[in-house]
Design a protein around this nucleic acid. Structure first.
Lengths: 214, 214
DNA sequence: AATTGGACTTTTATGGTCTAATAGTCGAAC
DNA sequence: GTTCGACTATTAGACCATAAAAGTCCAATT
């Protein structure tokens, strides 16, 4: 699990890293279901059994890849959070980055995304966990904006939830509209613009006013 | 097609109406694919050929049912538009009604909605037409609000499109999250609340301010 | 002529089986 | 601890056979 003891000749546990890199590349290119464990093993010039030494199942390997992508995304988010700037700007930035992250994530297993009910429960939980993390961060941004007096946010959680929900909805509808087995980068750009536009609309509504309803 | 000449003993073309009523009831209960033409014919105590006398295909019968529902929805929308009241109120009202309409529509063929790509193109066009009509109406509401000075809306079409897009996104994600073959009324209520909440957020942002980005 | 029923044909959906591909295992070797 | 080659167990996909449902036709009734 942790960074194991001592490597012998090759650097450390580079094999694991190699596997993850190859998996990322191939899943990102062909999607989860079209890539076999043999494919990955072959690419790094090793036997399939080696993969199973590091990852108990194909799905857990896939999950590890997702986790990596997400971790990286969260990091760049937190970097952005560290820099000073208005809360609105940070949230807007979040949305832009999130959409790019979505683009990558989607290409990893677009086939499964499209009929969601086939996705294994534990992966759904993973996605849910990701969403929760993001909501916390957005909530943090909003809180900052409120403290700075930029805008008024009745219950922070309610707003951050709504924003996430809206963005997820846009992505969901986008996925539905896709035809081929790949995401069209041009269509994706439209989605991104739409997401930013809606975000601006909502942020605009938060500026200095007590929020309505419920 | 039009209200044909003279009926003999039974009232006018009541058969057509009967068919539509039965179809609405049964599709609404079991979904498009689970109801056969025989079922409908049986319910109104007539032969299947009669159905085909009035409707060339099952899909066109279904479409007629959809059209009815939609027409009714549009009518109640326009009624609401006629009454005086703020644009924001009208839009909020639209959203509430739209969600109810969605509930009905969904139950009509939930199975097909869930894997959208299987839906026949001509039905997709129908839904698109519905959406376009609604966008026009929302645009009209927004325009009214702008004229009244309630809020500022840079390009009306842009905003109405975005609003529709957001609502559609929420519905889309809702469908994805459904498990059984029926919509859980309680979950649906949550969706409706969410839609109203988000609508309020956006409307709030439109109040007296030049809209951002793009 | 408009409308309906009943027998008819054609198309589509469904379940089962069979096979090939792929996930996953095991023990030996280093 | 790490890797490999050969092994087994699952699963996904192709194929087909059968049942059900869509859709057609024509005679009969009004």
């Amino acid at each position: 699990m942790s960074k194991a003891s001592a490597g012998h000749h090759t650097g450390d546990h580079s094999t694991r890293k190699q596997i993850l890199e190859s998996a990322l590349r191939q899943f990102g290119h062909f999607g989860f279901s079209k890539v076999t464990m043999n494919d990955i093993a072959a690419e790094i010039g090793m036997g399939k059994a080696t993969l199973y030494y590091y990852f108990p199942t194909k799905e857990e390997l896939f999950q590890a890849v997702l986790e990596n992508e997400h971790r990286q995304f969260i990091c760049s988010l937190e970097d952005a959070a560290a820099k000073k700037g208005s809360a609105a700007k940070k949230i807007r930035h979040y949305v832009a980055m999130k959409m790019d992250n979505f683009y990558n994530m989607t290409n990893l297993n677009i086939a499964d995304f499209r009929n969601w009910h086939t996705v294994k429960p534990f992966l759904q939980e993973t996605y849910q966990r990701f969403a929760d993390e993001e909501q916390a961060i957005i909530g943090h941004f909003l809180k900052g904006g409120m403290d700075a007096g930029d805008f008024t946010v009745t219950p922070v959680e309610r707003i951050s939830y709504a924003l996430l929900q809206v963005l997820r909805g846009l992505r969901c509808h986008f996925l539905r509209s896709i035809e081929g087995p790949r995401v069209d980068p041009e269509k994706f750009q439209q989605l991104k613009q739409e997401a930013l536009f809606v975000t601006d609309l909502i942020l605009n509504g938060l500026k200095s006013s007590t929020c309505a309803s419920q």
